[in-house]
Structures are given as structure tokens and as C-alpha cells.
Design a protein around this nucleic acid. Structure first.
Lengths: 209, 209
DNA sequence: TTCGATTTGTGAAGTCAGTCACAATCCCGC
DNA sequence: GCGGGATTGTGACTGACTTCACAAATCGAA
């Protein structure tokens, strides 16, 4: 594989390009300029070209990028050429909502397990999955091929759950709890509503632009 | 107000410090060093100090920061000294889950309206709020004092809803739809699950560390 | 009062990300 | 096959963020 390492900032934009690209493609655009892509994603055109250059991609000067080819190159860079098993731990309101999305738009992510410790939740069904007790996590992860864990538990137990996920060999965690997780090897992405609202709060303060 | 402008990267960390601080405070720590805070939030201690210095804050050399004072200073910087009205547009699984959080941990954010266009949803209750038709948005926003809009609609209508929110005078939007919104003045924060999973996908690729 | 152990605040250096600007390349029409 | 218009790829620049490293300040003990 050619691409050595892509800067994190660029990696985070690739999904946006991919989505924009798919939309444009469905609108019948076979060729796309960095300018158009930039407008869709609200960034500078030069930035788009630089990001895409990390893929070792080749647009055509004077023409643009072939949307099908570029889409495929981005998918390869992101590793979206195969499927990923996902488990969700903590089936409260949020966990249940995520569970019912199943394949999150991008059909490569498949939820294969739902876990909780609350006896009232266990046995409940969401779609065609049954909520199981957390104690089955390790065995299930070993059996199916699970690579991503989503934590939607109460804050208090999030760290402990993260540890369990890591112990099962999971190396990627999406954390919806308010706390910052400490992991040894796993990559963590944190998504928290109250954090986001607080950040918005700052920009709402009247004493700035 | 003293603080001129805080760099965006620092603003995004303030909620994390605040949360860590409140936790430490509840554990009985009245004084906290940048080192301890840094460990909790998984960042460099010098970064903590620099971030806090933007608040015009004053720790005590050789001692640390007074957790109560520092907490209050962060709250003031973030504008968390008053309440914010929030509306949610799009009461699907995710919207409903967010709605039932009500005050998102930080008791300063209050959901005051839920909107949808699906006749089956309208009239439904979540907590003590009733889902109303989107056409009432403008009047409701004017009447109550709404400053933040959360978009949990299908991707296809997200941009249109954002426009409506802006037309009502809302200047802060939290967007859960996959699309990148284009706004004129409103600040937008984007939170998207498939994007996050795709980013995790990149770091799962076997051909890198 | 002085000393040693801590811990802040911050200039300076280093790293990373974003923007600019333009040569290189390509397509199309004539 | 040449010229004009379009668009990429990228080196150089600029700016933002992060880390380092250390003087300055504080505390507590002797």
C-alpha cells in the first residue's frame, strides 16, 4: 500500500469528501473539481487537493477527479474495503438509538452485539439483536470478529467498560460518556453532547463577535 | 470581561477540564495541580497551564489551583453562568434519545421544544414536552428564548432546517446529520457517527502502527 | 530566616496545519 | 497541431498549536 501516513487532520476530512463525492456522483457528476468538493465540505480548494494528494491519488489537470475512482481511493485509505464488527455497551436511550441505525449509512459497519448489566434490559430485542449481559462480551468478541466498541454507558462505569473492551482485544473505541478514557493501545474517539453544547455556549457569549 | 479571545483548540478543552475538576472536587480535592488535571484529561501539563492562562486565571505557584475558583472561572469563560434554551428538530430515534436527557449533565441547557413534520410523531410526548409541527418553530423560538438548535433530521432535509433555524435568529447549531451545513452566521458543530466510525476505520488498518 | 521541594506562568523552539500562488498539464475547438 | 481556458500538484509561506524548559513564587520544616 503506497500511502505512508496521512495527517490526522486530513484523515478526519476524508469521510466528508467521501460523502460529498457520493452525493455528487448520484447527481450524475462523473468528474469533480477540487473547487466543487471544497464548496460542499466548506473548506479551501487547496486543502482538498493537498488532502487528496496524500492518497497518492491522481486527478487530471484541467479536468478534475473521476468521482468513481476517487471514491474508491478514499474508501481504500479509510480501510472501508472490508466489514467491521461493532458492539454497543450500555443500552439506554442513546445506545438503543444507535443500535437501531444498524449499518450507519456506510454499510461497512455491522452491529453484532448489544450489552448491558441491567436485568430489565437483558433479553430485550432491538431489530434482530438481543441485549446480552456484559459478562458474555469476551466470548462473543472472540467468536464473532469484533473490532470496534461503542460505549454508551453511564459515565461512572465507562472507564471500566473500556478496560474490558481492550482486554477482549478491541483496538477502537467510540466513547459517548462524558469522561476521558485512558487506554493502553486502543484508539478512542470521544463524542459528548454536553461538551459540544458547552463549546457552543462559548461562541454564544455576547462579549465576542 | 477580561479574556479577549481564547484559541478554539483551548475552548474545546475547557469542558473537559471543568468536568475533571468537578469530579476531583467531589473527591474532596480543594487544590489541584496542572499535572493532575492533565492526567485526567490525557494532555500535557504545560498545555493545561497555557489553556488556563487564557482565562486570566491565577493558580498559586508551588501549590496549584483552587478547584472551586477555577471551576467558576471556566464556567464564566464558557458563558455557563446563565441558562440556554435548546430545541431539537427531528424526533427519530436519536432525537428522542437526546430529548430524554433533558439537562445534559450540565444543568444550564434546557430543552424547550421538539419538532418534526411526521404526523405520526406530532403530539407524542417525551418527558413533559410534546412534539410539535416544525411550522411552529419560528413563533416558539421568538416566544421562549431559544439560542441553540439541534438537528437530528434525515440528511436530506438538514440544510433546509438549518436555514429555518437561522431565520429564527438561532446562532448555534449542533448538527447530527451526515451533511456539512452551510450557514451565514450561525456557529455549527457537527457530530456524526458514520464519520467517527470511518475515522476509527483508518486507524484500524493493519498496515500502520 | 533560610532551605528544599513544589508548582505556576511563559518566552522560545518545535511541530503541524492551512493558504497562496504558479508552473505543469490537459482538453477542446479550430 | 496550436492556443486558450481550466484545473491539478506542490513548494514556500504563514499562522496556529504544542511542547520544552526554566525563572519566579509559594509553602513548610528546621
Amino acid at each position: 500500500m503506497k500511502s505512508v501516513t496521512i495527517p490526522p487532520a486530513s484523515v478526519a476530512r476524508l469521510p466528508l469528501y467521501l460523502y460529498a463525492l457520493e452525493t455528487l456522483q448520484s447527481e450524475g457528476m462523473g468528474t469533480i473539481s477540487s473547487e466543487i468538493l471544497a464548496n460542499r465540505v466548506n473548506v479551501n480548494a487547496a486543502k482538498v487537493r493537498k488532502d487528496l494528494s496524500f492518497l497518492g491519488t491522481h486527478g487530471v489537470r484541467g479536468v478534475g477527479y473521476d468521482s468513481a475512482v476517487l471514491g474508491q481511493e478514499i474508501r481504500e485509505a479509510l480501510g472501508l474495503t472490508r466489514d467491521f464488527g461493532v458492539v454497543i455497551v450500555g443500552i439506554g436511550n442513546l445506545g438503543a438509538a444507535l443500535a437501531s441505525y444498524d449499518s450507519f449509512g456506510a454499510a461497512r459497519f455491522h452491529i453484532v452485539g448489544l450489552y448491558d448489566t441491567n436485568p430489565e434490559k437483558i433479553g430485550t430485542r432491538i431489530g434482530d439483536l438481543e441485549v446480552r449481559h456484559l459478562r458474555h462480551l469476551a466470548a462473543d468478541v472472540a467468536e464473532h470478529d469484533v473490532e470496534i466498541g461503542i460505549i454508551t454507558t453511564p459515565t461512572a462505569v465507562a472507564q471500566e467498560v473500556a478496560q474490558q473492551l481492550e482486554d477482549c482485544g478491541i483496538r477502537s473505541i467510540l466513547n459517548f460518556a462524558q469522561t476521558v478514557l485512558h487506554t493502553e493501545n486502543a484508539a478512542v474517539r470521544r463524542v459528548d453532547l454536553s461538551t459540544e453544547l458547552q463549546i457552543l455556549g462559548y461562541y454564544l457569549r455576547s462579549d465576542r463577535g
